[in-house]
Amino acid sequence: MSISHAPPSSPEPDISAMSKSERPGAERPGPGPLDLQPVVPAFSRGFRVPRWVRRTTGPIVLLAMWQVLSATGVLTSDVLASPGRIAQVGWDLVSDGSLPTAMGTSLRRVASGLLLGTVIGTGLALVSGLFRIGEDLVDAPVQMLRTVPFVGLIPLFIIWFGIGEAPKTAIITLGVTFPIYLNVYAGIRGVDSQLVEAGESLGLSRWGLTRHVVLPGALPGALTGLRYALGIAWLALVFAEQVNADAGIGFLMVQARDFLRTDVIVVCLIVYAFLGLLADFVVRSLERLLLQWRPTFTGR
């Protein structure tokens, strides 16, 4: 078939008619001068605004508009305080110590609820993930309870635990337990059976398999659960603190509502958001540390 590569200008090759019909190359147009186009390097297209500038422009414009609307009186302080006023109030709340105290109380509630919920959720997940009898006994009731909206239990918890710290911790614990349970359980059951078999072939005992294969394999799932749990913990905190609280960020907000102080409410919302970000950062760091074996976490 090399004949098809012969230049078309060459004389008709002296070959039999049999092969003539199967020479599609001979009919192709000759390689005339081609119209070449330069491939322009992508970075040479003039000056570009850095990405971080573009990304911060939107929020800044929004803030400026808010300030302008407040200053011109379109947005009254009864509806929403101006950004400048909010910054001022925020500073006052920090300097007179009421905000740090409230933050400390709220953080303590979240921490204790998170700890309790993580322990209970992980414990239940281990029982039902590692043992078939545990699954039969634990999984069905947990799945049933999971569908009850935990916020709806606040009245019952107040009757059971009174109005102190206990019902607040309990509601956060309850909210945290289920995402932890579900993700740890799924993590355990999702461990590659090939790895379990390899562990078996290496002579690992049941406990050895659990420690070296099953639990590390369930860790990514568990950390995902922890992140969900954190989100829910803050949500549960907001609900818990707005019912019968005498301290904490939620208490500050309820007080501010009674005095129509929208500035204080916004400051509290910002604090909630900030604490949520902080918690997320902690879990991310934890992931980077514990999951450094994953190719996405090469420790750079």
């Binding site: 790895l195 078999e197 390899a198 562990g199 690992l204 050895g208 070296h212 394999g217 074996w293």
Partner: peptide, 16 residues
Amino acid sequence: PRLMPWKKVWRNVLLG
């Protein structure tokens, strides 16, 4: 290979 991805190579070798 069925190596435990969460254990460094030498720990994998000594596992069990």
